[in-house]
């Protein structure tokens, strides 16, 4: 009893202390207000409304009608195209996410050992594709289905194929082609963060490593470099999850929308379809909510995996 009342008193005191502090720090809230209001309106509120609408039937014209879990049930049990989309997204995410992430790190690590001037050039070359806007469009020419396509003409020249391959319309090739393009663009923000982080690793740690008998670059990577890079690795992971699950621009631009046999349909394309073409906002919101939950889950898994690195 007495411990309980003490606990209550402590809580109350803490609340009052917090409130007093908040009052003293008024100006902080003033500073944060413009950002916070916009952030709430355009990032948090949409997320919350998305969760709300996912339980309703809503087509913008009529008021939303509550239908419980129906959207989710339909999505998982009845919507075969959604399952195709999930499959495609997972294939893309599993290949481009972890592979893109590791390649980003690997190349950042290699680049880090170059002399300064060479490093500057290399960073630009590797980073440029990810900021080049819709430059992935150029792959449309490279992989064009007729003989004027770059790849087709090269392969014909070498006699590997005798008829042009429809890279972007044949369901067998669509996904691999898209994955290549996405990998090409995957050296993004995370990569920059890695390059910068590697330059900031304390050289004394490496010296200590030599003394302690680290024999080759791989041992050094695992025992010295990676542990001091954890915060950047965390940041890079968040960035590559966002990218891996958010794929839709590239597939829509290259394979068309809708693509042959839905071979390049991703979850976001599906969301796009229901949201902007069919105006089934409730259904689209359910897709968005599911996608977001999967992303958060992935992030948690990766965080706990990263904690174990180098220990």
């Amino acid at each position: 009893m007495s411990t309980f009342s003490k606990y209550v008193k402590l809580k109350k005191d803490r609340a009052r202390y917090g409130w007093d502090k908040a009052k003293r720090m008024k100006v902080c809230y003033l500073f944060i207000a413009p950002y916070a209001i916009l952030f709430f309106t355009f990032y948090i509120l949409p997320m919350l409304t998305s969760i709300y609408y996912s339980f309703t039937y809503y087509n913008i014209l009529e008021p939303a009608r509550f239908i419980g879990f129906d959207n989710y049930i339909n999505l998982i049990l009845q919507d075969e195209i959604f399952l195709t989309a999930v499959k495609n997204t997972f294939i893309i995410a599993i290949v481009t996410g972890p592979v893109g992430y590791m390649l980003s790190f690997l190349f950042a690590w290699f680049i880090n050992e170059l002399p300064r001037w060479l490093r500057t050039i290399a960073v630009v070359i590797f980073y440029a594709p990810s900021i080049a806007g819709n430059a992935y469009y150029i792959f449309g020419i490279i992989f064009r289905g007729d003989i004027y396509g770059y790849l087709n003409s090269i392969l014909t020249e070498f006699g590997i194929i005798d008829a042009p391959v429809l890279w972007l319309s044949n369901p067998t090739y669509i996904l691999p082609v898209c994955i290549i393009v996405i990998l090409w663009m995957s050296m993004g923000t995370g990569f920059l963060s890695f390059v910068a982080g590697l330059q900031g690793v304390d050289p004394a740690l490496y010296e200590a490593g030599y003394v302690d008998g680290i024999r080759n670059r791989w041992q050094e990577l695992y025992f010295v470099t990676l542990p001091s890079m954890k915060p950047m690795l965390m940041f890079g992971a968040v960035m590559s999850i966002t990218q891996a699950f958010g794929v839709c621009d590239v597939t829509m631009a290259l394979a068309g929308y809708p693509s042959t046999d839905y071979a390049a349909r991703t979850v976001v394309t599906h969301l796009f379809d229901y949201g902007y073409s069919r105006f089934e906002m409730g259904y689209a919101s359910a897709i968005a909510t599911l996608l977001f939950l999967v992303m958060i889950l992935c992030n948690k898994i990766i965080q706990s995996a990263l904690r174990k690195v180098g220990t």
Binding site: F39, F42, Y43, I44, L45, P46, M47, T49, S50, Y53, V238, M239, I241, T242, Q243, F245, G246, C248, V268, L271, F272, G275, Y276, M281, A284, S285, A288, L291, F292, M295, I296, N299
Partner: peptide
Amino acid sequence: ALMFSGYVTGIPN
């Protein structure tokens, strides 16, 4: 929110 891609929040937005 770094993970919110524009498309996920696009519709409620």
